[in-house]
Simulated scan of single mutants.
Amino acid sequence: MRALTVRPGVADSLALSDVDEPPPSEGSVLVDGLCVGLCGTDTEIVSAEYGEAPPGSELLVLGHENLGRVAQASPDSGLSAGDLVVGIVRRPDPEPCAACAAGEWDMCRNGKYVEHGIKGLHGFARERWRADPDALVRLDPGLTDVGVLLEPTTILAKAWEQIDRIGRRAYWSPRVAVVTGAGPVGLMAALLGVQRGLEVHVFDRVTDGPKPQLVADLGATYHAEHLPDSKLEADVLIECTGVPSVIVDLLSLGANDSVTCLTGVSSVGATIPLDIGGLNRNAVLRNDVIFGTVNANRRHYEAGVAALAAADRAWLNRLISRRVPLADFREAFARKPEDVKVVLELGAAG
């Protein structure tokens, strides 16, 4: 069968390969792959910045944002042929740390977890794949067109869960949220903020294309100006770009008792002038919290399903700017200015 692969550590080794059928050892449920979403993580793996093949394999099948349909499942799995499913990306380490053993593998303490399409497990960019029932989340058939957005949504479901938990350390009545970046992650951050009834402001540098209208149609406010020029004081701040200068600007916008969540992964080595004393002074005197978050566990997948189900399907569909057949994978990786989310179709159309 066909799969999109790389040779980890070898830059630009992206290829459409013929690979073996998934063995039963990968899971008791056989899934027909429908599509995968592409993101910056995939691009970085293709560039050989990181990525790790499964033991004994020279290739890594890409694809962590996924959607599939059950082809075969045992009666005791809780799943049936035809069910729409998403595979959970991260799996606990073989001898779980305390966090993994508790089902909080997104908070793994020893780093021995594995991740589909990223670290030690083949991904979902293949025509068929397998998983055990506990590694699958079932979706309503009505989400067929947009279910591939679930994995990025889970990242924000976790972020908002932790923001809510931190906020409840004391009196907590947030009103204004700021999101930096209007890519898929930023737009999902904004969606979940609007669903919570907050006044949401999204900052991005583009002034045309689909992003400003997508933000407006959420009922949020789009900003293309320099972040500090807005004079906003936000109760919740979610950073989705990883750009160091944006992060520094964001840390100046918090209201008293604000919570700032960093989701964007920065490149290392960048240096910019920074008044760390001023940032520390403000954080201490305002009771601010700044934290980072990555990945998601099953609870966040279920929260993500609920968020997608409550969202406008037409709006979600507009996030998917291109659907590209698997055979045209190089076109899918060629970024276009109007792209928000590019999806690679794995089925017969591919």
Rank of each mutant, 00 (worst) to 15 (best):
D42W: 08
S17M: 08
T41P: 06
S25Q: 15
C39W: 08
C39Q: 05
E21Y: 03
D12C: 03
P22T: 01
D32V: 00
E21S: 09
P23Q: 13
L14G: 06
S25N: 04
E44M: 05
T43Q: 14
V31G: 10
G27H: 08
V19A: 04
P22H: 09
E21C: 03
G40A: 04
V19Q: 03
S25R: 10
G33L: 07
P22F: 09
D20A: 15
L38H: 01
A15K: 10
G40V: 00
G40C: 11
P23F: 03
V36H: 06
L30W: 15
P22W: 06
C35V: 01
S25C: 06
V31K: 06
A15T: 06
V31W: 15
G37V: 01
G27D: 12
L34Y: 10
A15M: 10
A15D: 15
A15F: 05
D42S: 01
L30C: 07
E26T: 00
V19I: 09
G40N: 08
P22Y: 07
E44L: 02
D32R: 12
E44Y: 09
V29C: 10
T43G: 05
D20N: 03
D42G: 03
P24H: 11
P24Y: 14
G27Y: 12
L34S: 02
S25G: 12
E44R: 14
I45M: 11
E26C: 08
L14Y: 13
S13G: 05
D18L: 08
S28Q: 10
G33P: 08
L34G: 04
A15V: 02
T41G: 06
